[in-house]
Design a protein around this nucleic acid. Structure first.
Length: 588
RNA sequence: GGUCCCGUAGUGCAGUUUGGAGUGCACGCCGCCCUGUCAAGGCGGAGGCCGCGGGUUCAAAUCCCGUCGGGACCGCCA
């Protein structure tokens, strides 16, 4: 991240040097620096130290009288670089060997007292205040650093994609509304009152049409918008690396995207694994209970089902899946109240119950249900979970999906470090199921990804006979338990596409009505293709060591979708509304 | 749509459990002193609708109800 010395043009600025770049080698030079007054240390009428800051750092200026200077004044200071006396060298400062003497100070801009100091060491500021004065917050080290990391990530991604032969194409921000998926932001049409554009949730449709259009390898660092509730990892608008490739299989896509992600990691955190490992969706669920496993810690789900094949304990008898997680050494620190709370949490998710077991001396299991289990069963639990004295075990017996989900949630609750803490553990999750659950109204299967996702070639024959067992060519990229993004190999044959639509209860006529502008092009020769999109904000946040993407976005929205600085959203002039043929109705 | 946490000086907090005068801390700010500091130091000072509205009470920052703002999460995000 260390930038090389910046070239300053004398023709556009009188500035000769950046504050943070002056060194002992510059001693004796007459220099002019520009920046903000960071701190003043006034010793008398005739001696004051003024630290001047620009984005490269700070430099100490020795000034004869600084009474008229205040914090955050913008100044231009000319003087002579001088070595500091040995006893006054400041090791904490990159420029600490030198200072500027004989300073001529010019105030370029006065400043009101800022609501918080720019020095992050002294002021911890509420985020709402930071956002209201974001332009001041941006002066601080954290945002300077994070936005520069972000720029480095964008640059690395763009280079990696171009190096691999991808062509950058911009797709429209104004597009037709497609009611599937996330809620859209709508833009009213002035020329056709009552009609609306939608802002893109993703360039999905257009990028596939670029494949039909023969572009072969497309990418875009694309702004996407979704009108869904905000979170630490979700904003209304966010940036994605969006890519699509023709005449490729899944391996090609995964490798191309891995290049971009790992290059970005290399230039920011200097850590670049050779390859991102893969895990099937089924393995992820079976071992970690989630489809975005955090591989930084163990606590894997342990299979116990066979142990209870002939159990007399009614709650376990006949359960399709019995699994456990082991919370090592937690017995002494886990209160009965906490155990009860975890049981409530399990029930909230949908489990019938949660069984906890404290592992006592000689690995004797202490549990409300211990008396219902045989000695063999108890011994088998200890052996399978590798339980040690002082551990707590949590067991769930339910159908496979519920057992996995509950224990996966508890595993994250109990063991997961904050997302931004290293190491960086990437994993591709592959072989997602084609469908997940059935629509409550129509009874048809619901697509797990989107309806243009290609079924797994080995499963395609079972589409009609056993759709819920069909895997897809969909894949996710996961880093430290955060979903960075997802993609798939697409369906390029109209016939196969209609087979999928039929399963979803969408007949040919309805398909044309809803997706016509997208389906028609595929009749004119669509290449086999697939692609991916991943969230740059999330990647940057993790690489920058942040747990909230607002910290890597220059001007983010709050959780309620507002901007404390600009006060958006705002009502608009009634004339504007009338021109668009709009009027508001009171909320009932 | 839901659950939980927070809101007190410019900023960050304590005070709220158990009601008793806006009670306090740190930083910042203003003034004075100070010729080697570097998150300078010393002395002095200013600064408060305790988010807002209602209620209970002799009395509310404190208890109750509502509301607004911020945050975490669930739902949602094909």
């Amino acid at each position: 991240m260390k930038s090389s010395r910046i070239n300053l043009s004398r023709s556009t600025s009188q500035r000769t040097d950046m504050c943070g770049e002056l060194r002992a080698a510059d001693a004796g030079r007459t220099v002019t620096v520009c920046g903000w007054v960071y701190r003043r240390r006034e010793h008398s009428e005739h001696l004051a130290f003024v630290d001047v800051r620009d984005h490269t750092g700070i430099v100490q200026c020795v000034v004869d009288g600084a009474r008229e200077l205040r914090g955050e004044y913008v100044v231009r200071i000319s003087g002579t670089v001088a070595m500091r006396p040995a006893e006054n060298v400041n090791d904490k400062l990159a420029t600490g060997d030198i200072e500027i003497h004989d300073c001529a100070v010019e105030v370029l801009s006065a400043a009101e007292t800022p609501p918080f100091t720019i020095d992050e060491r002294t002021d911890h500021v509420d985020e709402n205040v930071r956002l209201r004065y974001r332009y001041l917050d941006l002066r601080r080290d954290r945002m300077q650093r994070n936005l520069r990391i972000r720029a480095a990530v964008n640059s690395a991604i763009r280079s990696a994609m171009e190096r691999q032969g991808f062509v950058e194409v911009e797709t429209p921000m104004l597009m037709p509304s497609t009611p599937e998926g996330a809620r859209e932001f709508l833009v009213p049409s002035r020329k056709e009152p009552g009609s609306f554009y939608a802002l893109p949730q993703s360039p999905q449709l257009f990028k596939q049409l670029l494949m039909v259009g023969g572009f072969d390898r497309y990418f875009q660092i694309a702004r996407c918008l979704r009108d869904e509730d905000l979170r630490a990892d979700r904003q209304y608008e966010f940036m994605q690396l969006d890519a699509e490739m023709s005449f490729v299989d899944q391996d090609d896509v995964l490798e191309a995207i891995s290049e971009a992600v790992l290059d970005a990691a290399q230039v920011t955190v200097g850590e670049r694994p050779d390859v991102i490992p893969r895990m099937t969706w089924h393995d992820a669920m079976d071992r970690f209970g989630v489809d975005k496993p955090d591989l930084r810690f163990g606590m894997e789900l342990v299979e116990l089902t066979p142990i209870f094949a002939a159990t007399s304990f009614k709650a376990f008898a006949g359960a399709a899946a019995i699994k456990a997680i082991r919370h090592a050494g937690a017995s002494a620190t886990t209160s009965r109240n906490q155990l009860d709370a975890l049981t409530d949490r399990a029930k909230k998710i949908g489990a019938k119950g949660l069984v906890w077991m404290r592992v006592g001396e000689d690995r004797v299991l202490d549990s409300p249900i211990a008396k219902f289990l045989s000695d063999d069963e108890k011994a088998a639990i200890v052996a399978a979970t590798e339980a040690e004295t002082g551990d707590v075990l949590y067991l769930v017996a339910d159908d496979w999906a519920m057992t996995c989900e509950v224990l996966g949630t508890l595993r994250n609750d109990l063991g997961r470090p904050p997302v931004h803490q290293g190491p960086y553990r990437y994993v591709w999750i592959v072989d997602f199921p084609m469908f997940v659950g059935v629509d409550a109204v129509t009874g048809t299967p619901k697509p797990a990804h989107h309806p243009f996702t290609r079924p797994h070639p080995d499963d395609i024959d079972r589409l009609e006979s056993d759709p819920m067992s069909v895997r897809s060519r969909a894949y996710d990229l996961v880093l430290n338990g955060w979903e960075l993004g997802s993609g798939s190999i697409r369906i390029h044959e109209p016939e196969l596409q209609q087979r999928i639509f039929n399963l979803l209860g969408i007949g040919p006529d309805e398909a044309m009505k809803r997706f016509g502008f997208f389906l028609t092009p595929f009749r004119y020769g669509a290449p086999p293709h697939g692609g991916f999109a991943f969230g740059i904000d999330r990647l940057v946040a993790i690489l920058a060591g942040e747990e909230n993407i607002r910290e890597v976005i220059a001007f983010p929205k709050t959780q309620s979708g507002s901007d404390p600085m600009t006060n958006s959203p705002t009502p608009v002039d009634p004339k504007q509304m009338a021109e668009l043929g709009l009027r508001t109705i009171p909320r009932g």
